[in-house]
Design a protein around this nucleic acid. Sequence first.
DNA 1: GGTAATAGTGGGTAATAGTGGGTAATTGTG
DNA 2: CACAATTACCCACTATTACCCACTATTACC
Lengths: 149, 149
Amino acid sequence: MATFMGMFDYSIDSKGRISIPQKMRKNIKPEAKETFVATRGFEKCIAIYPLDEWENIEKKLSSLNSFKEKDRLFQRTFLMWASHQELDSQSRITLPKTLLDYAGIKSEVKIIGVGERIEVWDPEAFDKYLNSQSEGYEAIAEQVMGLGI
Amino acid sequence: MATFMGMFDYSIDSKGRISIPQKMRKNIKPEAKETFVATRGFEKCIAIYPLDEWENIEKKLSSLNSFKEKDRLFQRTFLMWASHQELDSQSRITLPKTLLDYAGIKSEVKIIGVGERIEVWDPEAFDKYLNSQSEGYEAIAEQVMGLGI
DNA sequence: GGTAATAGTGGGTAATAGTGGGTAATTGTG
DNA sequence: CACAATTACCCACTATTACCCACTATTACC
């Protein structure tokens, strides 16, 4: 599994392009073929998966039954935000305007590595998200990681 | 499996033609032979399947028992809306007026990729559909995909 | 510490995707 | 059989995208 980590301040140019940090590029598998899937993330951000990771998600999706109403709703709302993007010769991808609008991104972004995916946030939105949490870092760690690591 | 995704704002011209977005065309298999089947979708939209995907649906339909009344009803209502459409030299297909009327489409449309099919919506109808859902994106994801993605 | 390599950023130009419409062929109708 | 109406086929325009080149600041290396 590609494990992305770290936090980077980058910028988006007038054509909607964003560089993928070299520290993240170097642990992308060759089978991802320089291709990513950009989609709406949970909370107000953009999520970017290398192709090989995305295919795991597609496998899960293919088990849904499109003759069921709730499955259809999820297929639609989940897939409508997604799009394939290939690295250009400068190691950038283009993010669709719909996603930039959703995430409230203007020109500066915060890129963070979150395990199997990369997230792109508007800097202010990210601060706001962190500050909106009532519980601190240590408290959440204890809840989520439970009995220890 | 051809996995269509993404959301596009397109228009229908005075002859009822609609372009198939290039991002969707490029993951259509050659055995689909530039042919699609357009039919009535679930909810207020038009569903478009590449020929090879449609054949899977036909297989499912053929497993129905036409000696049962309910099966007959479904066969009829499902198939009566369907028609083959081939791409023209500009990568467009013509949508029958019956379908456009059903979906309430005037001239602007929202095209969304939903896995094995492409859906065409009237923009307002699509917003209405999304807004009519009581649960948000994150909540539905958790329900349908279980423990998270 | 100085120099070379490279990561991140910006922008110009050619290709092409999306859109619109004209004319010929086809269909079906009176 | 002639006509109207629809459909198929072709050509043309425009906005977007893909591809390429260029610059600067940081990082790696000797």
